[in-house]
Design a protein around this nucleic acid. Sequence first.
DNA 1: GTCAAAGATCTTGTATACATAACATGGACT
DNA 2: AGTCCATGTTATGTATACAAGATCTTTGAC
Lengths: 218, 218
Amino acid sequence: MRASERAYWALREDIVEWRLPPGTVLAEVEQAERLGVSRTPLREALGRLTAEGLAAPHTGRGVVVADISLENITEIFELRSALECQAASLAARRGDRTVFGKLQQEFSSAAELLRRDDPALHDYYQLVARLDSAIDEAIRNPYLLQALSNLRVHLVRIRRLAKDNPLRLLAAATEHANIAGAIAAGDSQLAAAATAVHLHQSLEHLKSTQQTAERTAS
Amino acid sequence: MRASERAYWALREDIVEWRLPPGTVLAEVEQAERLGVSRTPLREALGRLTAEGLAAPHTGRGVVVADISLENITEIFELRSALECQAASLAARRGDRTVFGKLQQEFSSAAELLRRDDPALHDYYQLVARLDSAIDEAIRNPYLLQALSNLRVHLVRIRRLAKDNPLRLLAAATEHANIAGAIAAGDSQLAAAATAVHLHQSLEHLKSTQQTAERTAS
DNA sequence: GTCAAAGATCTTGTATACATAACATGGACT
DNA sequence: AGTCCATGTTATGTATACAAGATCTTTGAC
């Protein structure tokens, strides 16, 4: 693997997992030494991170880890809504119905996954990832796919903020089942609507947990 | 201005203006010498172009100017529709109504601009650019804005393919007036709908001219 | 004549040295 | 005492040298 790739993924992980909190200055020599690469590939990594919005240029000198706040989250969801509703709509028109039919059933019985003794909820999140992948494949649109990928970086970063409680996850599973069902039925309008509902609920949940966290902190 | 910036904008212009046609290999030394910079800043420029989708990595060896076909155009418009409808919708909710009211009036009297003896239609295109800018400002959403910016690079590249005829431009002006009007009225649903109509018509026009061009070429 | 293998050559990937610009610090002047 | 300028320091921006990998060519054998 190339040094620039290693540096990129290492930094990306560090940012997404909040090991490098927002505002951290990413000095070239410092990070290059830390990651064991030279400045040239590290600069390439910083460039990619900046283009993705995980890092932001600092006045004149260097880059810092991009900030992310509750306001940002609302903005991210406005973009997410546009992209994912379109994606669901296209998937309903072009996707393989059997694939999404199967996913719908899996989500319908997801309560079992959530009852398992796995604090990381690995199986459940993998099911969600499979739905995302299925949609990605179904839309057959590299431009939309790239926009979704760019967005997901930020979503992963947010997920760390979300205190997933069992009730919300159960509701989310139902919403996901609805999305998969609409796609399986080839109903593009319903697929978009189901996605809009899901995203609205997710954002509301995020907002409330975030406010709770702020009250707790103060 | 930094050398990497110069190289980036020079290459971007060359690609967008079709001076570097799709498939052209962008060899580092060759382009570095041509643009009068060293390989380091040129690599940075190539990285940005690749991230934007104007260039694509070539198997093992360097990058080439990204291809763009009629199929791509349809895909680009699927993304465009998602982003611009959302943008129009948000602008209707948050924008300054007087600004868009004025733009609506200007588009309503745009027939005059189109009648002028300017083959480049500079004034008209500048009016369109002003509407875009007004929407960009009104949405107050940096994430959506960035997605729109990424998209517009490809749209500029496409515009070169479009043989704008006066009838289409006149119709487009009316469609733009409708969009501006809906935003000015604060009607987010109508703004999104008007945008969808405009994009649909634009794509249909592009498709027909493209097919004509293909028949002419063969 | 064709296929394969080895080497030459060209291109990219990385490291480092140098140039340049920005910030900080200290001193002098107002 | 505060501000402005100069100088030193540090970080970024650029160039170039070197390393590694890939492709193409050439040569040999079947």
